[in-house]
């Protein structure tokens, strides 16, 4: 009866779920620092800094790939917010004819794999000289990220009634001043979250980068992919840990600034799973 036994059961359940969630990370951590780990040993028999050395090798491929990934994902995040913010304002703040159709159109790249459209556009990119360039990769990364920023920001603007802006206007603020001093600070956390998600989605892209970058633009997931297809679990695990770092960082930041209890708090994060 009452809440207490239910709560205890739930706490036991969460331990089980947490263990299952953590499970794939166990071999990743162990392999990263393993020297010798033969079957059927449960733990490595020797430890080695080889994985770490590979990551930190001066002038190495990991360094270059990380820099490329950071640069592209950073630019994608900024551009997605710049494009998604006005769209979010329109979708969240106004009712208009054909809105359902517009939402469908904007959401489509989330559900229809961008792989199909990217193969289609590849020839055009070659003709325009965008293939095999970081800028070309940046452009196709916008396809999966813009829908997310637009939808996240639409829900941010939908929660605003416009009353605060009206109050500011009656106190003498111009339309621009009201936007600058009332709207923007109000939506800033949502904008930050949308930008972080766009960053993560771009950071996680593999196939779009391969198609348009043509091997000339090397990013972290490409190193990880080729390591994973090979036969060196130490290098694979070390790369995987580096690759996962920003995701963990974003999660920590987002959980700190978003209320997970709020029905909308997790929405953006939830959607992210589909694109990375």
């Amino acid at each position: 009866m009452g809440k207490r036994p239910g709560r205890r059961r739930a706490n036991a359940g969460i331990v089980v779920v947490a263990a299952l969630v953590a499970l794939p990370f166990v071999p990743l951590f162990l392999w990263t620092f393993a020297g010798e780990w033969r079957f059927p040993d449960l733990l490595p028999s020797e430890w080695s800094p080889r994985g770490i050395h590979y990551l930190l090798e001066p002038g190495g491929r990991v360094f270059e790939a990380s820099a490329n990934s950071l640069l592209i994902a950073g630019a994608v995040a900024l551009a997605s917010v710049a494009v998604g913010l006005p769209a979010g304002m329109a979708l969240g703040g106004y009712a208009f004819r054909l809105k359902g159709l517009v939402v469908f159109f904007i959401l489509l790249p989330i559900l229809v794999p961008p792989l199909a459209s990217t193969m289609g556009i590849h020839l055009t990119f070659i003709r325009l000289g965008l293939a095999d360039t970081a800028f070309g990769v940046f452009l196709v990364h916008l396809v999966p990220t813009v829908p997310y920023t637009a939808i996240i920001l639409a829900s941010v603007f939908a929660d605003r009634t416009g009353e605060l802006e009206s109050a500011a206007r009656t106190l003498g603020a111009s339309a621009w001043q009201a936007f600058r001093h009332v709207t923007l600070p109000g939506v800033a956390p949502g904008v930050a979250v949308a930008g972080l998600f766009a960053f993560l989605i771009s950071w996680s892209q593999y196939i779009l980068t391969v198609l348009i970058g043509g091997g000339q633009v090397v990013t972290l997931p490409m190193l990880l992919f080729s390591a994973a297809s090979g036969n060196d679990p130490v290098i694979t695990s070390a790369l995987a840990l580096v690759f996962v770092a920003p995701a963990v960082l974003v999660l920590v930041v987002a959980l700190r600034y978003l209320k997970p209890e709020a029905p909308d708090g997790g929405k953006g994060l939830v959607g992210l799973g589909k694109a990375s």
Binding site: V17, L28, L224, A228, S237, A247
Partner: peptide, 24 residues
């Protein structure tokens, strides 16, 4: 707590999940 536990796999790139699960 449940938010953290559930958000983690959602945020992790598929590629890392695949590599980790393959090693399991």
């Amino acid at each position: 707590v449940s938010a953290v536990v559930f958000q983690l796999p959602i945020t992790i790139p598929h590629l890392v999940a695949a590599v980790g699960i393959a090693l399991v």
